[in-house]
């Protein structure tokens, strides 16, 4: 899935009045949500039910009034915002994306891998300058935006990392 396709999806969501769309394809998971339909991104987590129903009426939960009983888990029920917000690692240079230290080796990271700051995620090569990209955060590799050997632009997204929830 590339950026263009994601943009098309976003447009489709906007035009059809869809509140939320989740799509998984070839290991890439995208969730698009229309603003105003769910908890604002900056709210404290986890979002309590009463808080949610009061300020953002959700049709399925509206009958519950001010009850403090938690909403039963429903399809499409709100999920905590920091599951959605991925930390995006971007390329500091123009070059070629290498997922592994050499053609016969295992990739540095795979989706689902847990990484710590300092962990090497990939190499970007430009004119035989090898730039090891390290993680600056702790989290789980959620998305790898590029295929091995693909050209990379300056500032292009390389990885989406699902941050480890801080308690």
């Amino acid at each position: 899935m590339n950026i263009k396709e994601i943009k098309e999806l976003m447009e489709a969501v906007r035009q059809n009045g869809i509140a939320e769309l989740e799509l998984e394809r070839a290991g890439v998971k995208v969730r698009i949500r229309k603003e105003g339909h769910l908890a604002p991104m900056g709210s404290t987590l986890p979002v309590s039910t009463s808080n949610l129903t009061a300020s953002h009426p959700v049709p399925l939960a509206s009958s519950m009034g001010g009850s403090s009983v938690p909403t039963p888990s429903l399809p499409g029920s709100p999920v905590t915002a920091d599951e959605e917000e991925l930390y995006v690692v971007r390329s500091p240079i123009v070059g070629t994306f290498h997922r592994a230290p050499n053609p016969n080796a295992e990739p540095f990271v795979k989706p689902g891998d847990l990484v710590e700051p300092g962990r090497v995620l990939c190499i970007i090569e430009a004119m035989k300058l090898m730039n090891e990209i390290e993680s600056e955060v702790s989290g789980e590799i959620a998305v790898i935006y590029l295929e091995n050997g693909e050209p990379v632009e300056f500032g292009q997204a390389l990885f989406g990392i699902r941050l480890v929830q801080k308690t």
Partner: peptide, 24 residues
């Protein structure tokens, strides 16, 4: 190109440059 120094068209040296950088 970019960094192989040749003598009589043969490789007598090699350069491996590695960088640790963030965005800027």
């Amino acid at each position: 190109w970019p960094n192989d120094v040749l003598v009589n068209n043969k490789k007598c040296s090699g350069i491996l440059t590695e960088m640790s950088a963030d965005l800027d």
